[in-house]
Protein backbone atom coordinates (compact mmCIF):
# COMPACT_ATOMS: atom_id res chain seq x y z
CA UNK A 1 0.00 0.00 0.00
CA UNK A 2 3.01 2.25 0.23
CA UNK A 3 2.85 5.09 -2.10
CA UNK A 4 6.39 6.24 -2.81
CA UNK A 5 5.37 9.77 -3.71
CA UNK A 6 3.21 10.28 -0.71
CA UNK A 7 5.18 11.99 2.08
CA UNK A 8 6.13 10.00 5.17
CA UNK A 9 4.88 12.82 7.38
CA UNK A 10 2.63 15.72 6.74
CA UNK A 11 1.88 18.32 9.40
CA UNK A 12 -0.64 21.15 9.19
CA UNK A 13 -0.76 24.16 11.44
CA UNK A 14 0.96 22.53 14.39
CA UNK A 15 0.78 24.69 17.48
CA UNK A 16 1.95 23.61 20.89
CA UNK A 17 1.33 25.68 23.98
CA UNK A 18 2.70 24.77 27.38
CA UNK A 19 1.12 26.18 30.51
CA UNK A 20 -1.81 28.55 30.65
CA UNK A 21 -2.63 32.17 31.47
CA UNK A 22 0.42 34.26 32.28
CA UNK A 23 2.74 31.29 32.00
CA UNK A 24 1.76 30.33 28.46
CA UNK A 25 4.72 29.36 26.35
CA UNK A 26 4.44 28.80 22.60
CA UNK A 27 6.71 25.91 21.67
CA UNK A 28 5.31 25.69 18.13
CA UNK A 29 3.45 28.38 16.25
CA UNK A 30 1.56 26.93 13.28
CA UNK A 31 4.12 24.68 11.68
CA UNK A 32 3.36 23.19 8.25
CA UNK A 33 5.66 20.46 7.07
CA UNK A 34 6.10 17.58 4.64
CA UNK A 35 8.82 14.98 5.03
CA UNK A 36 9.32 12.87 1.90
CA UNK A 37 9.94 9.19 2.23
CA UNK A 38 13.52 7.97 2.70
CA UNK A 39 14.99 11.43 3.17
CA UNK A 40 17.60 12.35 5.70
CA UNK A 41 16.29 15.49 7.37
CA UNK A 42 18.30 17.59 9.78
CA UNK A 43 16.47 19.96 12.11
CA UNK A 44 18.70 22.87 13.11
CA UNK A 45 18.01 25.54 15.63
CA UNK A 46 18.94 27.00 18.97
CA UNK A 47 17.61 25.71 22.32
CA UNK A 48 13.95 26.48 22.72
CA UNK A 49 13.32 26.87 19.01
CA UNK A 50 10.80 24.03 19.08
CA UNK A 51 12.70 21.32 17.28
CA UNK A 52 12.36 18.73 20.08
CA UNK A 53 8.68 19.50 20.48
CA UNK A 54 8.17 18.97 16.75
CA UNK A 55 10.07 15.69 16.84
CA UNK A 56 8.12 14.49 19.89
CA UNK A 57 4.83 15.19 18.17
CA UNK A 58 5.91 13.47 14.95
CA UNK A 59 7.17 10.51 17.00
CA UNK A 60 3.87 10.08 18.83
CA UNK A 61 5.23 11.05 22.24
CA UNK A 62 3.33 14.29 22.53
CA UNK A 63 0.25 15.83 21.00
CA UNK A 64 -0.15 19.32 19.58
CA UNK A 65 -2.49 21.91 21.06
CA UNK A 66 -3.74 22.62 17.54
CA UNK A 67 -3.13 21.17 14.10
CA UNK A 68 -2.87 17.75 12.52
CA UNK A 69 -0.14 15.23 11.81
CA UNK A 70 -0.46 12.51 9.19
CA UNK A 71 1.77 9.48 8.95
CA UNK A 72 1.21 7.80 5.59
CA UNK A 73 -2.54 8.17 5.36
CA UNK A 74 -3.32 7.97 9.04
CA UNK A 75 -3.90 10.93 11.29
CA UNK A 76 -1.58 10.55 14.28
CA UNK A 77 -3.29 13.37 16.12
CA UNK A 78 -6.46 11.31 16.24
CA UNK A 79 -4.74 8.37 17.98
CA UNK A 80 -5.27 7.45 21.61
CA UNK A 81 -2.43 6.33 23.83
CA UNK A 82 -2.80 2.68 22.91
CA UNK A 83 -2.62 3.41 19.19
CA UNK A 84 0.32 5.74 19.67
CA UNK A 85 2.15 2.96 21.52
CA UNK A 86 1.46 0.61 18.61
CA UNK A 87 2.59 3.28 16.15
CA UNK A 88 5.90 3.66 17.98
CA UNK A 89 6.25 -0.08 18.32
CA UNK A 90 5.79 -0.78 14.60
CA UNK A 91 7.01 2.25 12.73
CA UNK A 92 9.34 4.42 14.76
CA UNK A 93 12.91 4.14 15.95
CA UNK A 94 14.31 6.53 18.55
CA UNK A 95 17.90 7.45 19.34
CA UNK A 96 18.42 9.58 22.45
CA UNK A 97 21.17 12.02 23.34
CA UNK A 98 22.10 9.97 26.41
CA UNK A 99 21.67 6.54 24.76
CA UNK A 100 19.20 5.29 27.40
CA UNK A 101 20.37 1.72 27.17
CA UNK A 102 19.14 -0.75 29.77
CA UNK A 103 22.19 -1.33 31.99
CA UNK A 104 21.07 -4.79 32.98
CA UNK A 105 20.96 -6.05 29.40
CA UNK A 106 23.88 -6.73 27.05
CA UNK A 107 24.20 -4.96 23.71
CA UNK A 108 22.54 -7.89 21.98
CA UNK A 109 19.79 -8.11 24.56
CA UNK A 110 19.09 -4.38 24.38
CA UNK A 111 18.41 -4.84 20.68
CA UNK A 112 16.48 -8.05 21.26
CA UNK A 113 14.25 -6.18 23.69
CA UNK A 114 12.81 -4.37 20.68
CA UNK A 115 12.96 -7.17 18.11
CA UNK A 116 10.97 -9.43 20.43
CA UNK A 117 7.96 -7.18 20.15
CA UNK A 118 8.36 -6.08 16.52
CA UNK A 119 6.43 -7.66 13.64
CA UNK A 120 9.16 -7.69 10.98
CA UNK A 121 12.53 -7.21 12.63
CA UNK A 122 16.01 -8.02 11.38
CA UNK A 123 18.08 -10.16 13.71
CA UNK A 124 19.77 -8.31 16.58
CA UNK A 125 23.17 -9.52 15.34
CA UNK A 126 22.48 -8.08 11.91
CA UNK A 127 21.45 -4.74 13.42
CA UNK A 128 24.62 -4.59 15.48
CA UNK A 129 26.70 -5.49 12.45
CA UNK A 130 25.11 -2.60 10.59
CA UNK A 131 26.53 -0.20 13.18
CA UNK A 132 29.87 -2.01 13.28
CA UNK A 133 29.55 -3.60 16.69
CA UNK A 134 29.43 -7.27 15.75
CA UNK A 135 32.42 -7.91 18.03
CA UNK A 136 30.91 -6.32 21.14
CA UNK A 137 27.48 -7.90 21.21
CA UNK A 138 27.83 -9.61 24.60
CA UNK A 139 29.07 -6.55 26.44
CA UNK A 140 26.97 -4.70 29.01
CA UNK A 141 26.54 -0.91 28.64
CA UNK A 142 28.97 -0.32 31.50
CA UNK A 143 31.65 -2.08 29.40
CA UNK A 144 31.10 0.07 26.30
CA UNK A 145 32.38 3.55 25.41
CA UNK A 146 29.93 6.41 24.85
CA UNK A 147 30.17 6.09 21.06
CA UNK A 148 29.65 2.35 21.25
CA UNK A 149 26.66 2.79 23.53
CA UNK A 150 25.14 5.23 21.05
CA UNK A 151 25.69 2.81 18.19
CA UNK A 152 23.91 0.09 20.23
CA UNK A 153 21.08 2.59 20.66
CA UNK A 154 20.98 3.07 16.86
CA UNK A 155 21.01 -0.68 16.29
CA UNK A 156 18.17 -0.99 18.80
CA UNK A 157 16.24 1.75 17.00
CA UNK A 158 16.58 0.31 13.49
CA UNK A 159 16.42 -3.44 14.24
CA UNK A 160 12.68 -3.46 13.87
CA UNK A 161 13.13 -1.93 10.37
CA UNK A 162 11.15 1.19 11.22
CA UNK A 163 9.72 3.53 8.64
CA UNK A 164 11.19 6.49 10.45
CA UNK A 165 14.18 7.03 12.67
CA UNK A 166 14.24 9.99 15.05
CA UNK A 167 17.56 11.02 16.52
CA UNK A 168 17.58 13.78 19.14
CA UNK A 169 21.07 15.21 19.45
CA UNK A 170 22.65 11.80 18.79
CA UNK A 171 26.16 13.20 19.00
CA UNK A 172 25.48 15.72 21.74
CA UNK A 173 27.30 13.74 24.39
CA UNK A 174 30.17 12.60 22.17
CA UNK A 175 33.46 14.05 20.94
CA UNK A 176 33.65 14.82 17.19
CA UNK A 177 35.57 11.73 16.19
CA UNK A 178 33.18 9.39 17.92
CA UNK A 179 30.26 11.50 16.75
CA UNK A 180 31.25 10.94 13.12
CA UNK A 181 31.30 7.16 13.62
CA UNK A 182 27.77 7.41 15.00
CA UNK A 183 26.61 9.62 12.12
CA UNK A 184 28.09 7.15 9.63
CA UNK A 185 25.94 4.46 11.20
CA UNK A 186 22.84 6.65 10.88
CA UNK A 187 23.65 7.53 7.27
CA UNK A 188 24.20 3.90 6.41
CA UNK A 189 20.83 2.90 7.85
CA UNK A 190 19.14 5.71 5.93
CA UNK A 191 20.80 4.67 2.73
CA UNK A 192 20.61 0.89 2.95
CA UNK A 193 17.17 0.54 4.57
CA UNK A 194 15.66 3.63 2.98
CA UNK A 195 14.51 4.73 6.47
CA UNK A 196 13.15 8.23 6.66
CA UNK A 197 15.49 9.84 9.18
CA UNK A 198 15.14 13.03 11.19
CA UNK A 199 18.13 14.24 13.17
CA UNK A 200 17.89 17.08 15.66
CA UNK A 201 21.03 19.00 16.31
CA UNK A 202 22.19 22.47 17.12
CA UNK A 203 25.45 21.66 15.35
CA UNK A 204 25.23 23.28 11.91
CA UNK A 205 28.13 21.19 10.60
CA UNK A 206 26.02 18.08 10.61
CA UNK A 207 23.56 19.66 8.21
CA UNK A 208 25.98 18.98 5.34
CA UNK A 209 25.04 15.29 5.31
CA UNK A 210 21.28 15.94 5.05
CA UNK A 211 19.00 15.76 2.03
CA UNK A 212 16.94 18.49 3.58
CA UNK A 213 17.69 21.02 6.30
CA UNK A 214 14.97 22.64 8.36
CA UNK A 215 16.04 25.74 10.23
CA UNK A 216 13.83 26.44 13.24
CA UNK A 217 13.45 29.49 15.44
CA UNK A 218 10.70 30.72 17.79
CA UNK A 219 8.50 27.71 17.15
CA UNK A 220 8.45 28.15 13.42
CA UNK A 221 10.32 26.73 10.47
CA UNK A 222 12.31 29.72 9.22
CA UNK A 223 13.86 28.00 6.29
CA UNK A 224 13.52 24.69 4.48
CA UNK A 225 16.53 24.02 2.28
CA UNK A 226 17.16 21.06 -0.01
CA UNK A 227 20.79 19.95 -0.12
CA UNK A 228 21.49 18.75 -3.62
CA UNK A 229 24.87 17.27 -2.75
CA UNK A 230 24.86 15.73 0.68
CA UNK A 231 28.34 14.71 1.77
CA UNK A 232 29.58 11.66 3.63
CA UNK A 233 29.73 12.00 7.44
CA UNK A 234 33.46 11.26 7.27
CA UNK A 235 33.88 14.55 5.44
CA UNK A 236 32.22 16.53 8.22
CA UNK A 237 34.04 18.44 10.88
CA UNK A 238 33.09 20.64 13.79
Amino acid sequence: MEDQDYPAFRAEGLTKIYGSGDTRVYALRGVDLEVPRGEMVVLLGPSGSGKSTLLNILGGLDSPTEGHVYFDHQELTAFDDQHLTRFRREHVGFVFQFYNLIPSLTALENVALVTEIASNPMSPEQALELVGLEKRIHHFPAQLSGGEQQRVAIARAIAKQPNVLFCDEPTGALDSKTGIVVLEAIARVNRELNTTTMVITHNAGIAEMADRVLQMADGQIQESRVNETPCEPSALSW
Partner: peptide
Protein backbone atom coordinates in the same frame (compact mmCIF):
# COMPACT_ATOMS: atom_id res chain seq x y z
CA UNK B 1 11.89 5.72 35.77
CA UNK B 2 14.14 6.85 32.94
CA UNK B 3 14.84 3.30 31.88
CA UNK B 4 11.15 2.44 31.92
CA UNK B 5 10.15 5.63 30.13
CA UNK B 6 12.64 4.97 27.33
CA UNK B 7 11.13 1.50 26.96
CA UNK B 8 7.76 3.15 26.61
CA UNK B 9 9.22 5.41 23.91
CA UNK B 10 10.58 2.34 22.15
CA UNK B 11 7.06 1.02 21.93
CA UNK B 12 6.62 -1.19 24.97
CA UNK B 13 3.11 -1.01 26.36
CA UNK B 14 2.29 0.12 29.89
CA UNK B 15 1.66 -3.48 30.85
CA UNK B 16 5.01 -4.62 29.51
Amino acid sequence: GRELASLRVLGLTRGE
